[in-house]
Computed example of a mutant assay.
Amino acid sequence: MKTHLICTAIDRLTEVGARGAKMAQPDHILMLVRGMTLLKDVPIGFVTKPVAFNQDLKALVANENVNPLFLSYLLVEKKRVMMGLVNTANHGTGRLDTNLLKALPIDIPPLPEQRKIADILSTWDRAIETSEALLATARTQKRALMQSLLTGKRRFPEFEEQEWKIGGLDLLAEIHMGQSPAGSTYNSDGIGSPLLNGPTEFTDRHPVARQWTTKPTKMCKDGDVLVCVRGSSTGRMNVADGAYCIGRGIAAVRKRNGLTDTVYLQQLLHSLVELVLSRAAGSTFPNIDKKSLNALQVHIPTYEAQKRIGLVLADADDEIDSYVGDIKNLHAEKKALMQQLLTGKRRVNVDA
C-alpha cells in the first residue's frame, strides 16, 4: 500500500483463486496488522476497487454515521498512537491486536463535516497522484533519452558525421579507490576533512558528511562520481560537491581533463548501474574492483558532443527534480491540513 487510495495492485488472482479469497470492497479500509513493516509504520489504504487481501491485513467497514474516506484519513493521523500499540510475536514480527485497535479513542465530527474534510484531503491525494504520474513519465523519458543518446543511436545533426569510439571506461576517466583512515582519527565535530565511508552518507544526488577525519587518506574532488564498490549497496552512486576523504567502500570516478565532460561522465555512469552490478564479484558480499570498473565498455563521442548530450540529460534531471519537489510540497501541505482538520483545531464550513 504505497498510496492512500488503492486503485490497483501489482499481483493478480485467477478466477479460481478469487473465489476463495477474502475481498475488500470499495469504501473499505485496509490496514496492516501483522508483519515486520509494523515495526516502523502502519500502512493504511482506502479501497476504490474490489481487491483481495491476505491474513496480514484487516478490512475495516465504517458504521452508517461515519464517512469511510474520512475514517481512513483519521486513522492515518492516528498512526503514531497505533505504533505504540504494536507488539512483537516470538519471532520478532510486529502485531497489532484487533481488540486494542477497536478500543482506539477517536473524535468524530458531524457527518456533513466528515464528508467535507474527506473531499478536501482527497483533492490533495489526486494532486499527488497526478504529480507522481508526471514524475513516472519524466523518468521513463529520461531512460529512453539515455539509451539513445549515450549509445550513439540518436545523434544531434551537427555531430552526425563525427566518429564515436568504443572502449573501456579508463579512456574517459580515472578511477581512484578509497582507503579508510584509522578509526582513531574520526570525529563528529567537523574537525579535519569530511569522511565518506559508504551509502549512509549518500542522498538522491550529493553526499552529506556525518563524520570527519584529522588524517585523510584518499580524497575525491568536486564533480567526481562516487560509486559504492562493496556490500549490498554496490553500484549506488552520488556526485561529489566538494572534496571528501573516501573510505574503502567507495571509488571516485574522475574525468580526464580536455577529453571528458563532467556532466556526460556522470550521466554515463548512472546508465551503467546494472552493468556495474553484473561485474560485482561475490554473492553474499558483492564488490567490484578498479580493474572491473576500468574495463566497462562505453561509447565515447567527441568532447563537444559530450557537452551537448550532458546538457540535454541534465535538463531532464531538472524536470524530474521539479516534480519530486512538487510531490514533497504537496505531502507537507496535506500533512499540515490533516493535523488541523482531523483534530478539530480547524473547523470547516458546511453548506446548509
Rank of each mutant, 00 (worst) to 15 (best):
K2W: 13
T8V: 01
T8H: 03
I10H: 14
T14I: 05
V16L: 04
A18H: 07
A18W: 11
G20T: 05
A21V: 07
A21T: 01
L32R: 13
L32G: 09
M36V: 09
M36C: 02
D41E: 08
V42H: 09
V42D: 06
V42T: 14
I44W: 02
V51Q: 00
F53T: 00
N54E: 10
Q55F: 03
D56M: 02
K58M: 13
A59M: 09
N65G: 09
V66W: 03
L69C: 12
F70Y: 08
L75G: 00
E77D: 06
K78H: 15
K79C: 05
M83P: 01
V86Q: 15
N90M: 06
R95F: 11
R95P: 01
L101W: 10
K102V: 05
A103S: 15
P105Y: 01
P110E: 14
L111H: 06
I117C: 03
D119K: 08
I120T: 07
R126F: 05
R126H: 03
A127G: 13
S131M: 15
A133V: 03
L134D: 11
L134N: 12
A136E: 12
T137Q: 12
A138M: 04
R139G: 08
T140V: 02
Q141N: 06
S148R: 10
S148H: 08
T151A: 06
F159M: 09
F159T: 07
G168Y: 07
A173F: 08
M177P: 10
M177L: 14
G178F: 13
G178T: 12
G178N: 05
S180M: 05
G183T: 12
G183V: 14
I191A: 04
L196W: 14
G198A: 13
G198H: 12
P199W: 00
T200M: 08
R205C: 09
A209S: 10
R210D: 05
T213I: 09
P216W: 04
D222G: 03
D224R: 09
V225T: 11
C228L: 05
R230E: 13
S232M: 12
T234P: 10
D241C: 09
G242W: 13
G247C: 02
G249H: 12
K255W: 09
N257W: 08
L259F: 04
T262L: 13
Q267T: 03
L268T: 07
L268D: 05
H270C: 03
L272G: 10
L275F: 10
V276H: 12
L277R: 15
S283Q: 15
S283D: 06
F285A: 01
F285D: 06
N287F: 15
S292Y: 05
L293M: 15
Q297G: 05
T302P: 02
T302H: 04
E304P: 02
A305C: 14
A305E: 15
Q306G: 13
Q306P: 06
R308D: 03
V312T: 13
V312F: 02
L313C: 12
A314W: 02
A314T: 08
I320M: 02
L330R: 04
E333P: 01
E333T: 07
L337M: 14
Q340H: 04
L341V: 07
T343C: 09
R347A: 14
N349H: 11
N349F: 13
A352I: 02
A352P: 10
A352Q: 12
